[in-house]
Amino acid sequence: MSKYNFDYLDELEAEAIHILREVAGQFEKPALLFSGGKDSITLVRLAEKAFRPGKFPFPLVHIDTGHNFEETIEYRDRMVARLGERLIVGSVQASIDAGKVVEQKGKNASRNALQTVTLLDTIEQHQFDACIGGARRDEEKARAKERIFSVRDEFGQWDPKRQRPELWNIYNGKIHKGENVRVFPISNWTELDVWNYIRREKIELPSIYFAHEREVITRNGQLMAASSYVNMDEEDVVERKKVRFRTVGDISCTAAIESDAFLIDDIIDEISRSKISERGARMDDKVSEAAMEDRKKGGYF
């Protein structure tokens, strides 16, 4: 496509828009899962490009662990107000209160795993037949294997050995009642592509992505925000450091990195030179070699 001076970001963007419009055309009740992170913020911009000046043919759905960075919730609410789109919040706290899941105990307790139950409940309650997510294949090796339209059974499970062939740019969204499809429009983007796109599109991000001073503790060699959501004891030493976050999830499982990157150019520079992957800062992936594959089989994104 070099003939039209169609740059790689244009190509990735056009592919993602095509996928979003296929979701709109093929499903009765789709939803866009919005985590407040840069990938789902990118998805929102792509949805604007796919459907404006019309409304989005889906609501935004936020699975709220209750252990959020304040900045992400503020950002979310401001964004929803600007967009004028519908937001549905699935609450992990509500799942805990209803006795559907039990809060983890111990020092490294996190609500990350509990999210899956709330997600599946929310899907069932609203009868969503497709959930759009911002997962990328470069993030993790099980993700590298997943189709763009990934069919999940009634229990949300991914069966990696029985994936449908996915040919050319033709996406088969046919499912039986009760099943749903997870759709990943930015499967082929890398972390750096997302940042370059955010810079090009001048998309605003929650402030925690940029370097700031914060109280942190060191856990298993990683910096965690010192917060009431992280179980701390006498051994934990609280320090003040200049940090930023590379991914945004539940406070109790998202590690910070020391950084001076205050502008988006600094961040792009930092990532280009970085020798650690983005998910290297996620405690949830460190559990075992197949941690992500197992979570996906259980219904996780």
């Binding site: 294949r137 090796k141 590298a144 294997k145 050995k161 890398t190 594959e293």
Partner: peptide, 24 residues
């Protein structure tokens, strides 16, 4: 091992499904 991302693939030492990798 970099591309054999599934447990079954690592156990059997073969590639079962496509893995996508990115570099520049």
């Amino acid at each position: 091992i970099l591309t054999d991302g599934l447990r079954a693939e690592r156990e059997q030492g073969i590639t079962i499904d496509v893995a996508y990798k990115y570099f520049q």
